[in-house]
């Protein structure tokens, strides 16, 4: 019985196939025509869209790059060039005077090295501590986890300026459960040094740490659980698993966080102002007062000329960032895409 059934079915299928073939054959010519037409219209459409896209891209790229180019060219202007209306972009008598003065006023070499060390060390702490918290949130279950994660979101949402006063107070009379005043007689004043920043970053409450914890949590959630299970079966401890296996796998997220943290720390003036961190440590703080300092020291009273010095100073400040960005650009963009920065 069953054999007969299958035979019948086979026959049926074959006839259906034949019908299909015939149907295709009859409509073959008209289909060719249609394909050609739609190909041409598609080609034109694609071309127009492509042109349109490039117009937008080039326009926006110009808006972004334009000021940077303008700043670079203006930093080479001599006084005469600045007032010559015929000079646009290319200076007639280029001068390195602006860079020399700006560099000496900024005390460039030592300031840049100091602030790079400062931001890089904070970056390492940020990546370590925030990835730890993120890993904890993503992989372990403990009581009140949801509430704690809501607190992370709260850290992102609450603007830092809300808590700036208490922070200032906390660090001007720094004390841990009265231990320090017991030893020292009075609480420590940690302001005008970089210590508060390090303490806060170490407890992952530094500059935008909430965002970084969020990024790491989302990323670790996306990693397969099997990696850890294999490690566990092979006898890895929790910390070994985290440092040697999970952190390695989180490279894209780590690079994203690292670049964000480095750049924002390097550019930050809020905490630098709040904790009154010495401006030989934080170049961004020094650059704010650059125009005034140069005006006072070199007796230059023309604001237009002072702007040229400012341009040169900012270019000097940006150079390390741009170099790092160019070096890590590819990893950054790819890392951002894979790091699950989104929810």
């Amino acid at each position: 019985m069953s054999e007969e059934m299958t035979l019948e079915q086979k026959n049926k299928e074959e006839t259906i196939d034949q019908v299909d073939v015939i149907a295709e054959g009859s409509g073959f010519l008209s289909k060719m025509d249609k394909n050609k037409k739609s190909q041409i219209t598609n080609g034109v459409k694609g071309f127009v869209l492509g042109v349109f896209r490039w117009i937008i891209i080039i326009g926006i790229a110009y808006v972004i790059i334009g000021p940077v180019l303008g700043m670079i060219s203006r930093s080479f202007f001599s006084d005469a060039d600045n007032y010559n209306p015929m000079v646009y972009m290319i200076p007639e008598s280029p001068t390195l005077e602006r860079f020399k003065v700006a560099a000496s006023t900024l005390n460039y070499k030592s300031t840049v090295i100091n602030s790079l060390i400062y931001s890089l060390s904070l970056m390492v702490i940020q990546v370590l501590m925030c990835s730890m918290a993120g890993y904890g949130f993503a992989r372990y279950n403990f009581p009140l986890k949801k509430l704690f994660f809501a607190c992370v979101v709260l850290m992102i949402v609450v603007p830092t300026h809300t808590i700036m006063l208490p922070l200032y107070m906390t660090f001007s009379n720094f004390d841990v459960f009265g231990i320090i005043s017991l030893i020292n007689g009075k609480p420590l004043n940690l302001l005008s040094s970089a210590v508060p920043m390090y303490i806060m970053t170490f407890f992952s409450c530094g500059l935008r740490s909430g965002l970084y914890i969020y990024i790491f949590t989302q990323f670790f959630r996306g990693l397969p659980k099997e990696i850890e299970e294999a490690a566990f079966v092979d006898g890895c401890g929790v910390w070994y698993t985290y440092f040697r296996i999970m952190l390695r796998n989180a490279t894209p997220a780590a690079i994203t966080v690292a670049i964000f943290s480095l750049v924002w720390q390097y550019n930050d003036t809020f905490y630098a102002r709040l904790f009154n961190i010495s401006d030989s440590l934080v170049i961004s703080k020094r650059i704010v007062g650059l125009q005034l300092t140069i005006g006072n020291v070199y007796k230059i009273y023309d604001p237009n000329i002072l702007e040229l010095y400012m341009d040169a100073g900012i270019i000097l400040m940006m150079i390390p960032l741009v170099v790092i960005y160019i070096l890590l650009q590819k990893q950054f963009v790819e890392g951002v895409e894979r790091s699950g920065i989104v929810g």
Binding site: M132, G136, Y140, I163, P166, M200, F203, S204
Partner: peptide
């Protein structure tokens, strides 16, 4: 046991949050 170990991962953050954020918000 795992949950206790996991809790250790967020302890630094938790201390920081309570110390710097929650306390500061209250103080504000």
């Amino acid at each position: 046991r795992r949950s206790i170990k996991g809790f250790f991962f967020i302890v630094p953050w938790l201390i920081g949050f309570l110390w710097f954020y929650l306390r500061s918000l209250m103080l504000t």
